[in-house]
């Protein structure tokens, strides 16, 4: 089975209390942030590697981003991808329609039975891209997949709805899935894997290599402004050393009749 995994790199903002808006008001200041692979894409790579181990075939990792994004491709290679392609273009703040058009052009050049995306990205999290690309490619899709079993010509998947309900589908290949967290336990990357990854070559392509030009790609939505979220209600903060805060909180809970 030939598999394509689309992955991206994101700033880690989950624990960053330093998020500030850039003077352009079109992005956040990123210079003090650490970067990592998109959470969902780790599960994408693990799912892809497991399928390859079971069914053979090829695994190609694809990303659209600047040079630093090679890092996520190296990770993919270390986990077991055979080849990796980076389209050298910073599209992180662009309309997903445009990103989808570019990804479609890359995917079409490659052999594939199954295309895997993350269900969502941590930074902008539109959750669009997979299903958009499937429609452009003209293949069936399922989003938010948390169980996946593959045969040669078809796959059985379960996608997640609200409140712990799943929907089961059987889908003919080729198909595109967006993978949800929890579908597997992503493996640790071994030193051997890292060494092998460093020896493999990354293929870098430009938009013009794909027959595209940014001017011809007109966005359908436009980012107007980025702001810090409005201050909502704020918790009453209990301050001090752990002994003190714990003592005060214990008293609050006791007074509230919790124990």
């Amino acid at each position: 089975m030939d598999i394509i995994a689309c992955i991206k790199r994101v700033p880690d903002t989950s624990e960053a209390d330093v998020v500030k808006i850039d003077p352009s008001q079109k992005d956040i200041e990123k210079d003090r942030l650490a970067f990592k692979i998109n959470d969902w894409d780790e599960y994408v790579l693990e799912a892809a590697v497991q399928l390859k181990e079971k069914l053979g075939g090829t695994l190609t990792a694809v990303t659209i981003g600047p040079k630093e994004w090679d890092e996520v491709l190296r990770r993919a290679l270390a986990m077991g991808a055979d080849s990796a392609i980076r389209i050298d273009q910073d599209v992180s703040a662009d309309d997903p329609h445009i990103v989808a058009i570019i990804l479609d052009k890359v995917i079409r050049r490659l052999p594939y039975d199954l295309v895997l995306f993350g269900a969502q990205s941590e930074d902008f999290g539109s959750g669009h891209l997979g299903a958009m690309v499937a429609e452009i490619l003209g293949i069936p899709h399922a989003t938010l997949v948390i169980n996946l079993e593959a045969e040669e010509k078809k796959i059985h998947v379960q996608r997640e709805l609200e409140a712990g309900t799943l929907q089961s589908y059987t889908i003919d290949l080729p198909a595109l899935l967006t993978i949800h967290t929890g579908i597997n336990q992503p493996r640790y990357i071994s030193m051997g894997g890292i060494r092998r990854a460093m020896q493999k070559e990354l293929q870098v392509m430009s938009l013009s290599d794909l027959g595209l030009s940014l001017d011809a790609l007109t966005p359908m939505v436009k980012l107007e402004e980025m702001r810090l979220p409005p201050k909502g209600k704020e918790a009453e903060l209990i301050t001090g050393a752990p002994e003190e805060t714990a003592g005060q909180l214990a008293k609050i809970l006791k007074d509230a009749g919790i124990f």
């Binding site: 960053a16 209390d17 918790a235 805060t245 714990a246 909180l249």
Partner: peptide, 30 residues
């Protein structure tokens, strides 16, 4: 430990600290 965590805008009370330090102390105090 992140004072900007969105959970603080839903919470009535908050402690900005390492859970692993506060929780054992809280168990003792309670």
């Amino acid at each position: 430990k992140d004072a900007k965590a969105p959970i603080f805008s839903v919470a009535n009370y908050g402690i900005v600290d390492d859970v692993l330090k506060v929780v054992p102390a809280l168990v003792n105090k309670i």
